[in-house]
Design a protein around this nucleic acid. Structure first.
Lengths: 364, 364
DNA sequence: CATCGCCTTGCAAGCGCTTGCGACACGAGC
DNA sequence: GCTCGTGTCGCAAGCGCTTGCAAGGCGATG
């Protein structure tokens, strides 16, 4: 209830002990009898005391804060994963400092200067592949690091098997009978590698599947664009004018897939009758539009990466040079209404299935 | 380049001055000649020096950090608005600490204890209506406050005219000829008032419009549920079994509207031929599904609320007791393909318009 | 009964920065 | 030539907490 005027001293006086005892008692440091500890605790409660973080940070060197770095906040994936991570971190008593590195210039500035030192004990870097020097810079600032959607030797990370997932996704399309399957992927914005590694892995998985099916020889049906509805739409538009247009597409993100669905609709093509679309993320709106996609347990990833950083932070004290944990999960196919066999393969002649066979077509 | 070992002293030695001069020079405090200032600056740069935030916080009492409090992160609206706000804050040299208050219990704990004191200089509270005591608690912790989606005397805030917007939305439906317009709103989760004031205002606007049109007498067509796709779907399902089902609905959030569209589709009803839907937010996916909605410039709101807090923080020094700024913006209708005159009013007999008149129907 | 060791507690020295105040040098004004 | 003001700078006292170390009290031990 009281305000900023209460300091250790006030508590010490009220409890009739020294400040050092107060400090020890409140932090459960051994060396204080249960009786005094309780007395101190009561006094602190009564006064509404809360230790000044600045002072204890200065004295201990620990900030009990971790940073989370993301390329962009206003995307479902990041909101979700940050939300989960912060809950986990908060439970462990950590505050979280947020850094959005939207442009290459911001990224440059962030890694180029000593900013984190004394602000955070560790940092979670999401969907950004830090270079060796960048990691070293962080280490020299005393930061523990955990990566999500990236990997680096000696650094804890959580990943999904994007290549395997890409392959599985395309296999599904192939198994349905599609011969011409396109890939719509994420292009790095402004030249830098903001796109990250996962998108590339998905592309490789796509090629894997095509190669295994003996379909690698044909003309390439790979289109990259920015990771957004508009980007997906633009990419699909380009595909529509290809010499031999595809009958299905594996899209590297659900948001882009939404754009793809939009363009297909505008083109008068029915999904999945005329064209199949398979996304990636299992975005919360997939269910609404009936998009088949690859789910990679986004919430769990957030929890995992937070846990890994917490481990690394704990390992600071336990001086066993334990290697940081690295997790990899495999994505799973979620079938909805945007994928089906290609038209040519239907048992009934084209057009015989009613245009509005409700419940069997995607809804965009 | 160097690490944590550089402190003011190192810089002072290298520049051949005292630590106090270094401190003043680096912070552009008057009382240092241009020559020495440059010398100090060079020395600091050469050493890669960066002042320990903990130490300067302890000494000055200012943290150069602001907190952002949101009820949930994984929603498009919050991601967007936080993103914009953090950019603005960072430009002003502030770090941002993130607090997600997902449950009533977390909210209780957050406001019930002195947590912010010494951690942040101010806090932006989003979509949460803080009580008088809660605000006083924050003030006693030395926090400046700015609100988004809430109002309180003496506190800066940004708001949209939700009531006017609700009224405008319903007017649009009424003008199209709808007689039975439903309202689907946001219900507070777990009993607390997490729903906030804006949803209530939208409901009042709905009633305003109905009243003005002389339609207030009929049976109530108001359904509340949680702010999510599922919630919207559930609410719409309930409306479908009403004695006299509505022909249009104004939905208090786009996400809920998506759920509404989903249920309508499942029920075999065409939007907008059989039913009109009007949402709220102008969610980035509205364009994809063709949802008519009320736009309230989300990004601008983020920038505005950050600016207001920044002003309040600056006003700390300038001791004119200037009243905090309060902004209110009006939403605007964005027409897409989910609204149209009710079936009964069509110029052509029912059914004569082809079922797949592309470009004129919503796509869910 | 004296001694030793352990458990509690307090003292005081920092942690790295900021800032009021005094010291000093210099040019101006009488 | 002396005083005074202005502009630069350094000294040292904190800011509020943590922690190594020493002091004191106690029961256990020989």
């Amino acid at each position: 209830m009281d305000n900023m005027l209460v300091s250790v001293e006030t508590v010490a006086e009220r409890a009739g002990v020294s400040v050092s005892t107060v400090s020890r008692a409140l932090r459960s440091v051994p060396g204080v009898s249960a009786a005094t500890r309780k007395r101190v605790q009561d006094a602190a409660d009564a006064l509404g005391y809360s230790a000044s973080p600045a002072a204890s940070r200065l004295a201990t060197g620990k900030t009990m804060t971790v940073g989370i770095v993301v390329p962009v906040l206003a995307k479902w994936f990041f909101g979700k994963v940050i939300g989960e991570a912060t809950q986990t971190l908060r439970q462990a008593g950590f505050d979280v400092l947020l850094y959005e590195l939207a442009t290459a210039e911001q990224r440059q500035r962030f890694f180029g200067t000593v900013h984190l030192h004394g602000r955070t004990d560790g940092v979670i870097i999401m969907a950004l592949q830090p270079s060796r020097e960048e990691l070293e810079s962080l280490a020299s600032q005393g930061q523990r690091v955990a990566l999500l959607g990236a990997e680096s030797a000696g650094v804890g990370s959580v990943n999904v098997d994007n290549r395997g997932a890409g392959r599985a996704a395309v296999r599904h399309l192939l198994n349905l009978g599609h011969q011409r399957v396109a890939f719509i992927g994420i292009r790095d914005e402004d030249g830098s590698n903001l796109g990250g590694v996962p998108p590339l892995q998905r592309l490789l998985g796509y090629r894997d599947a095509l190669g295994e099916a003996g379909l690698a020889g044909g003309d390439v049906l790979e289109e990259l664009d920015e990771n957004s509805v508009a980007g997906g739409a633009a990419a699909m538009s380009r595909l529509l004018v290809a010499e031999h247009a595809p009958t299905a597409a594996f899209v590297a993100s659900d948001e882009m897939a939404f754009g793809v669905l939009k363009v297909l609709r505008q083109a008068g093509l029915d999904v999945p009758r005329d064209f199949s679309v398979l996304g990636f993320d299992n975005h919360e709106l997939c269910d609404v539009v009936g998009l088949t996609t690859m789910d990679h347990a986004v919430a769990e990833q957030g929890r995992d990466v937070a846990g890994i950083l917490l481990d690394a932070l704990a390992g600071l004290d336990a001086l066993d040079g334990s290697v940081p944990r690295t997790l990899s999960r495999t994505a799973r196919l979620v079938i909805r209404e945007s994928t089906a066999p290609p038209r040519a393969l239907r048992s009934t002649p084209a057009g015989s299935d009613s245009p509005d066979s409700a419940g069997h077509s995607a809804h965009l």
